[in-house]
Amino acid sequence: MNGPERLRGARADEISKQIADDIVLGRFAPGARLDEAMLAGLFGVSRTPVREALKQLAIQGLVVSRPNRGSVVAELTPEQRDRMFEAIGELEAACARYAAIRLSAAEREHLSALHAQSRDAMRAGDVDLYDHLNHAWHQVIIHGCGNPVLIEMTLGLRHRIAPFRRSQFRNVERMSASYEEHAVIIEALLAHDVTTAQRQMRAHLVSARSATARVAGSEPGKTAPT
């Protein structure tokens, strides 16, 4: 991939993330039409990265693409969101259980380093950086489970639920709670305590689900584009 292609890809990722946040926070209501020309003007880009962003959102289940009719915001009920959190909680809990046994020394060191960096991000109130480090932290544990089938399943669902998980950190207090929950999980992982690692990771995702539910829809919705 050459330079311009990488730039377009990065721009599409950025646009996808912004639209996802708007959907999760209720700024684009379920059923709202996502017009490519309108979005291109909003972001100051051509329609190409917008089209790619909408494809990414369709894969995540946040957007429904209709042949020859454009894209609309998907209908996702709170119950459906809760079921996704319930499932990812079980998958990541299983990853933590096996990671407690299989994490390499280098992976354990990396996990601790990410935790230290996230502390600095939390204290600075840097939501974007904390979210980035949080994602990387979970990735280490998921890959550290050493089970390719479990890794594939977990990453697939994690990608779908990522916008909802990211929204929880709009409540700055949630960053502090998340950091403390991570500390307990790390302690269990470093101690090779499979039972505590599994239990605390599941509890961590339950907390994330509750925090997301409090944030979702808390901001006034914008007028749906037509």
Rank of each mutant, 00 (worst) to 15 (best):
148 P>H: 12
109 E>R: 13
129 L>K: 12
112 S>C: 12
119 R>L: 15
127 V>C: 06
148 P>I: 08
135 H>L: 09
85 F>N: 07
99 A>E: 01
147 N>F: 09
97 R>H: 14
131 D>P: 02
105 A>Y: 02
140 V>N: 03
108 R>C: 14
131 D>K: 07
103 L>K: 04
92 E>F: 02
93 A>K: 04
109 E>H: 10
115 H>G: 06
84 M>D: 13
147 N>H: 12
140 V>W: 03
108 R>L: 15
89 G>R: 09
91 L>N: 09
126 D>F: 01
117 Q>Y: 03
108 R>A: 10
148 P>F: 11
99 A>I: 04
98 Y>A: 09
140 V>H: 01
114 L>W: 05
101 I>Q: 13
142 I>H: 02
85 F>W: 10
97 R>G: 06
84 M>P: 02
101 I>T: 12
144 G>W: 00
125 G>A: 06
117 Q>S: 14
146 G>W: 06
128 D>H: 10
106 A>P: 01
144 G>S: 08
113 A>Y: 07
121 A>R: 06
146 G>P: 07
110 H>M: 10
115 H>D: 10
111 L>T: 08
139 Q>N: 11
104 S>H: 05
149 V>T: 12
84 M>I: 07
149 V>M: 09
142 I>C: 06
134 N>K: 05
122 M>N: 09
130 Y>H: 13
96 A>W: 05
105 A>R: 15
123 R>V: 10
109 E>D: 13
113 A>K: 11
139 Q>L: 12
115 H>P: 00
125 G>D: 04
123 R>L: 15
106 A>E: 15
143 H>R: 14
121 A>M: 07
133 L>W: 00
99 A>F: 03
143 H>D: 13
87 A>Q: 13
86 E>V: 03
119 R>S: 11
91 L>C: 08
102 R>Y: 02
88 I>E: 12
146 G>Q: 05
84 M>N: 09
136 A>F: 00
87 A>H: 11
147 N>A: 11
115 H>W: 12
97 R>F: 11
143 H>I: 03
127 V>G: 01
113 A>S: 13
142 I>P: 02
128 D>A: 15
109 E>W: 00
104 S>F: 03
148 P>V: 10
88 I>T: 12
136 A>Q: 13
117 Q>V: 01
109 E>F: 00
104 S>T: 15
112 S>G: 15
107 E>I: 03
132 H>P: 04
114 L>Y: 06
90 E>G: 12
119 R>T: 11
102 R>W: 01
135 H>S: 11
87 A>G: 00
148 P>W: 11
131 D>Y: 06
102 R>I: 00
127 V>K: 12
127 V>N: 02
104 S>N: 04
124 A>W: 01
133 L>R: 03
95 C>R: 07
99 A>P: 04
88 I>N: 10
102 R>S: 08
92 E>A: 05
138 H>P: 01
102 R>F: 02
89 G>S: 08
117 Q>P: 00
116 A>T: 14
95 C>I: 02
